[in-house]
Design a protein around this nucleic acid. Structure first.
Lengths: 147, 147
DNA sequence: TTGGATGCAAAAGTTTTGCACGGTT
DNA sequence: AACCGTGCAAAACTTTTGCATCCAA
């Protein structure tokens, strides 16, 4: 089965956060979800699981989880809402379908040596980067969807 | 000197938009500005120029300009507000200083061949990408600023 | 027990919209 | 003159916050 509910409890405690039902459930949902979710979507998922929780608690939990670097907050083009996903150890990028809006992860980062080059060119200290690729997934491509 | 005010009028008309003072002024401001601005910042710049305009007009003008692809809308990490910049013919990326939040453009795109490779790997039709690099500019690096 | 976490309600911040009026073509 | 653009006010939407209460450690 992999992770049990108490795993998340331990992770929370290890990070100096109290093991509460909303927080553990949020980690559980995000770990099962293949793609980033908005706070509102997480709130819905929680209600489906009959986890009684307030939307502001979701925001506060996500803020705490981001602070501890257990969760990553991100935004994509043409959507003002923030998205949240489980933070991965491995550096990853997003491939976003312009048709169905599904977000998948890209494993290999094509910018390995690039940051060093850029640093010497610009005299910046580079801390990191964000790369999102946009396109149409096989399904939307076939169906010729354009929105 | 370069562009005069009437240049923007012509551009607007060529794109099927009426040449109005707020729109021309917005294009003028964006063309003079080295970095993307929020709607609110544009609104302030307009007031400084004694261009009487309403904030909702700024939003509507920006929407129209984005529709005509004269302006690009973007967002960066850790800021929920949208930014707007003049659309460039040449594909560019952003280098964002985590200290002073200044945004500069990166000319050369390091992802030339990458999209093709990704397309064949994922079976997506790639339409484009977005790359932002984060770091500290020479000033902020020296001063050790961290916010 | 005690400080952190939550619920609720209200506020804040950004962006959008309805409608009447005004300006460009 | 016709239609698009604008101002104003209100609404919509996302996110944050104050405060009393509750709960995990």
């Amino acid at each position: 089965m992999g992770r049990t509910d108490s795993d998340f409890g331990r992770i929370l405690r290890q990070n100096g956060l109290k093991n509460t039902r909303p927080r553990a459930a949020i980690l559980d949902i995000l770990s099962g979800e293949g793609q980033p979710l908005t706070a509102e979507e997480l709130f819905s998922r929680l209600q489906e699981r009959v986890v009684s929780v307030n939307l502001s608690t979701v925001y506060r939990a996500l803020e705490a989880l981001c602070d501890k670097e257990l969760v990553t907050k991100l935004t994509i083009k043409d959507d003002s809402r923030a998205l949240y996903e489980l933070k991965r150890m491995i550096h990853r990028h997003h491939l976003i379908c312009l048709g169905c809006k599904r977000i998948t992860s890209i494993g290999r980062c094509p910018l390995e040596g690039y940051e060093k080059r850029l640093a010497s060119e610009t005299d910046y200290v580079i801390e990191g980067h964000n790369l999102d690729v946009y396109g149409y997934c096989p399904d939307c491509r076939v169906n010729g969807l354009n929105a």
